[in-house]
Amino acid sequence: MIRFALCSAYMALIYAFIFLPVAVLALFSFQDGRFPIPPFRGFSLRWHAEVLADADLIAALVNSLLVAVASSALALALGFLAARAVATGALRGAGMVRAAITAPLSVSYLVIGLGLLASLNLMGIGLSLGTVAIGHVVINTPLCFAICSAALGPATANAERAARDLGAGEIRVMALVTAPMIMPALLAAFLLSVTFSWDEFIIAFLLSRFDVTLPVEIWSLLRSGLNPKTNAVGSLVFMLSALAVLAVELAAARRK
């Protein structure tokens, strides 16, 4: 009984700590006043409306989606192919290849971003959404590689060998046998990459110029100090992510 009470009390405390900022953020996005701090003056949708009417924010949101989907697709392709190469066992120095591809995982995003910024400057390449995507492919390829590697095993290798014996070429083996067999892993890798890219700030901040992604646009909003509009952006992003998660969960439930 005491044990149960202790556990419940601890859970309540930690969950309160975890939810507190998000709850405050959401509540004061409805503030009918200029400051998102107590007292709460009443319910208003005016800040949400202001966000949806803000062309810069909407453009940044679209940019973020574009960068996330494009960079994740490329990272998944690179990671999947490399994972297959390592899984065949035919590669010489497979351990080195694995280490080389997963190396970016151990380096801070700030350092990756700065390095790319310096190199692009030296090469005379201008900053754009494309350079942001390049950076995001760098951080997401190791992730996709690791997830795909974990999914490839003796089962996929046997099926691939059978398909090859039956005369399928390498591309058909990959598209018709390997990919469908590890589809859940491919989806997971893609979605995780999209999430990381969507939320990534420092690389996008360093490698973008005129067109920016959503976190960078929100960053420039922060310069105006505490502002219910920032609350509204935050809660809208939250709802968008919640809907996406729900959609994925429903899709997964349906597949079963």
Partner: peptide, 9 residues
């Protein structure tokens, strides 16, 4: 759950 909102936010 708070993972769902943006890191900056």
């Amino acid at each position: 759950i708070p993972f769902w909102t943006s890191y900056v936010v």
